[in-house]
Design a protein around this nucleic acid. Sequence first.
DNA 1: GCGACCGATGATGTGCACAACATTCGGGAT
DNA 2: ATCCCGAATGTTGTGCACATCATCGGTCGC
Lengths: 227, 227
Amino acid sequence: MNAQTDDITPGARGRFERMHAELRNRICLLDYAPGTRLSEEALAAEFGVSRTPLRRVLARLEGEGLVQSVHGVGTFVTDVEIDELGQTYRLRLELAELTGKLDPVPPGPELMTEFEKLLVRARKLSREADPKPYAQLIMDFFLAAQRLTANEPLREINERLYVRTTRIWLKSIFAARIDLAEEMAVFTREVEDVLAALRIGDLHAASLIQRAHISMSFERMRRGTAG
Amino acid sequence: MNAQTDDITPGARGRFERMHAELRNRICLLDYAPGTRLSEEALAAEFGVSRTPLRRVLARLEGEGLVQSVHGVGTFVTDVEIDELGQTYRLRLELAELTGKLDPVPPGPELMTEFEKLLVRARKLSREADPKPYAQLIMDFFLAAQRLTANEPLREINERLYVRTTRIWLKSIFAARIDLAEEMAVFTREVEDVLAALRIGDLHAASLIQRAHISMSFERMRRGTAG
DNA sequence: GCGACCGATGATGTGCACAACATTCGGGAT
DNA sequence: ATCCCGAATGTTGTGCACATCATCGGTCGC
């Protein structure tokens, strides 16, 4: 997810980072839905390594709360129950606002261009059966917004909570109860509003907008899942 | 660090948890100072296992930012430079206050008793050459304060940031520039004030007091280290 | 027929030998 | 004397065989 993740670092460390990033992406983009069993042997064969280094990757993912290994049964992509999801979202609300207050970094022209491209992508994205483009767009927007703070620990924590919750939210969205087109319209509006705030240099406002949208999107999910 | 960490869970999971907790404690209590090299073979022999499961523990610790492994060189206890330390402390300030606002849990009589015991320990603790009792007391106070919120993700993140920073702070304290007796007097005052706030049921005030003390203690460390 | 037991099966966990890598130290050419 | 190269050493990383565990299905006893 970080910038240096996708480069072609040689050696053992590079292999580890690439496998880790790849598996995390698959989990976040719902290639592996919550509950899916991950075969160590199959993944090891796919990446062309033995089980040993792959298991190290899985151990890291387990530390991040994305998978859970059970002796003699398998390693499964974690799911998150509604209670903990609510706690996490309430925390993400506050952290989103902090992103605009703690070590804020005014966006340069290239970052502004990136936000504009994200807005174009959001407007173009039509109804799709595959959750992947949605997940990718929303994650790219999240990552772009992360660049508005220089506080590295805050970014790390934000990412940590993001990958644990958004895939669950995305899964709920596609589970049917929620109107997908409306959800994307709301998201497009969020990008527009954040972009407007950034154009006048008000980072705190941008973070408040995101805070509001995180809150509302969770509320929509909660209502859609409950009925 | 959690309650279920120190129980005697059998099987592979239990061994892992126990080794992990033990090594984390040693790092946090400065048994292994920043920069120390950890020998996989020696630790494996000590715990009576082979290198394989021990390496899994080290991988977890690396994910938590407590150690770093370098191929062909060794795994070393991490140090934190002043810049990132400042970022982390600024973040911890905000999170400390959140602990009083997000899912607050009024302390029961047993927790109040624990705080009172901590106050007694703080008052008794005289000048010592060994940092361990100080580290243990401060950590116990931190853990007790964590029980004032039911927000599990917040607690997890608080702990994560705590273990990464407090050992560095403690190391600086014992590096000489800072008056140890005065530092402990300030800490005792913090426990007293938090206890007073809890007695009248004002959890937000308790969190604000802790926020203030985190800020001030970092400032004292910064000044002591800079000169 | 039904239930309990047990063996087969397939998964993760462990131990060990070896590979890859970085550092260090010593010897030889200049 | 100095610099460079390479072997020796010690470390983490990898591959593989086996141990341990949970699950499932068949079979035996009742």
